[in-house]
Computed example of a mutant assay.
Amino acid sequence: MLWASLVLVPVALAAALFGMGDVSVFLLSVLALAPLAWVIGESTEQVGEYTGPAIAGLLNASFGNAPELMVALFAVDSGLFEVVRGSLSGSVISNLLLVLGFSLFVGGRGRIDRRSAYGALGMVALAGLLFAVPALAYGPSASERLTALGVAVAAVLLAIYLVVTAWSVVRERRRHRESGTASQADWSLPRALVTLGLATLTTVAVTEVLINSIESFADASGLSDFFVSAVIVAIAGNAAEHGGAVVIAARGGVQLASEIALQSASQVAVGLIPAVVLLSLLIRPLPVFFSWVEYLGLAIAVAVPALMLLRGRSSRWKGTGMVASYAVVVVVFYVAS
Rank of each mutant, 00 (worst) to 15 (best):
G222N: 13
L28G: 00
A15P: 02
R111C: 02
V156C: 07
W3G: 12
R316K: 12
G41Y: 03
V133S: 09
A154L: 08
A16T: 11
V329F: 08
V268E: 06
L104V: 00
A327F: 04
R114F: 01
R311A: 10
S266T: 09
V323N: 10
N238H: 07
G64F: 00
P134R: 02
V233M: 06
V246Y: 03
V328Y: 15
G243Q: 02
I235G: 03
I55G: 10
L100V: 01
H176R: 13
A218Q: 05
T203K: 01
M1K: 12
L281G: 09
V270E: 06
L33N: 03
G319P: 01
L281A: 10
M123G: 08
A148Y: 11
V163L: 11
R111L: 09
A135V: 14
F18T: 10
Y138K: 12
Y118N: 07
L310Y: 14
I160C: 12
L310T: 08
G312D: 03
V293G: 14
F290Y: 15
R173Q: 15
V209Q: 06
A192G: 06
I214N: 00
R85W: 03
G110Q: 06
A154K: 05
E49Y: 13
L278Q: 03
R85H: 15
H176T: 12
L58M: 11
V23G: 09
L8V: 04
P134Y: 09
A34I: 15
V164Y: 11
L98W: 02
V83Q: 14
L146E: 12
T44R: 02
V332N: 07
Q46M: 08
V106T: 05
G312H: 06
A275S: 15
A236F: 00
L310H: 13
